[in-house]
Design a protein around this nucleic acid. Structure first.
Ligand SMILES: [Zn+2]
Ligand SMILES: [Zn+2]
Ligand SMILES: [Zn+2]
Ligand SMILES: [Zn+2]
Lengths: 133, 133
DNA sequence: AGCGTGACTGATAATCATTGTCAATAAGGA
DNA sequence: TCCTTATTGACAATGATTATCAGTCACGCT
């Protein structure tokens, strides 16, 4: 019944994704092409959304509304990020006290099916240095 | 030098925005039209982005990438929301300990110009009831 | 009250990210 | 190898947002 096939394209995409930078589907596609891959844009979109649904990659929606992806660190659990808004480089952070607080405040207001978003963005040391020249 | 003029359209838009629901520009436009206004879609977009830039309305980016707006109770002050992902109804929450925590963890990683996003989403009591109805 | 200027408006075209279409291709089990 | 069908990729289509630009009107000034 299940039937997920391991194709050349999927292997290429998995290989390209790293755990350092958050990039858009279009950006990953460009990156793959520049490395010689011939993978199509639609395929990159399909693979990334599928991987995100499967929880194998992280996705965040940027301030401008683009969806950004990166591969998770091994063995994924719920976590949040501190991301560079210039280059996409990100580190994972955890916000221990918030997790329970979120549930409490939500039920207090009668809201169900709660989910939450916590993202920190800034300019990483490398990009800050580059700015100064 | 400054030159922001109070037009009929801007007055209508300001009047329409309420402090209860987060809606997209298109949704506010529909709402205005249904009330008899003849305001154009582009004008609604322009007014909302201007108001958001001026800090007079809050804007959040939804999971699907749409930008949602509403007028807020807390004036200019920084705050966060618990929003219904079905109807947009939202309440303001505060996350007391987080503000300083965000700054600390960011500088710890060398990131500058920090900003953060915290949004809770769920299904409000009214929408939950309607689901069952 | 009348005038002039430039900010504002609205219909529409353009843009941009993302999704849908569909014929051709190629995993992977028999 | 052969068959079934998931997958691919070029391209069209969508949907939100932004840019154009000619016509309009707010508002300071006389
Ligand atoms: Zn950076
Ligand atoms: Zn969390
Ligand atoms: Zn608010
Ligand atoms: Zn609701």
């Amino acid at each position: 019944m299940t039937a997920t096939r391991m194709t050349r394209q999927r292997r290429e995409i998995l290989d390209a994704l790293d755990t350092r930078d958050f990039r858009s589907a279009q950006s990953w596609h460009e990156h793959l092409r520049s490395e010689g891959s011939t993978v199509g844009l639609a395929t990159v979109y399909r693979a990334l959304t599928a991987l995100a649904d499967a929880g194998e990659v992280d996705s965040v929606v940027s301030e401008s509304g683009e969806t950004l992806y990166r591969r998770c660190e091994a063995g994924e659990e719920h976590h949040h990020h501190l991301r560079c808004r210039v280059c996409g480089r990100a580190v994972e952070i955890d916000v221990p006290s918030f997790e329970s607080y979120a549930a409490a405040i939500a039920t207090e207001h009668g809201y169900a099916e709660i989910s939450h978003t916590i993202e920190l963005t800034g300019v990483c040391p490398a990009c800050a240095a580059r700015d100064r020249g």
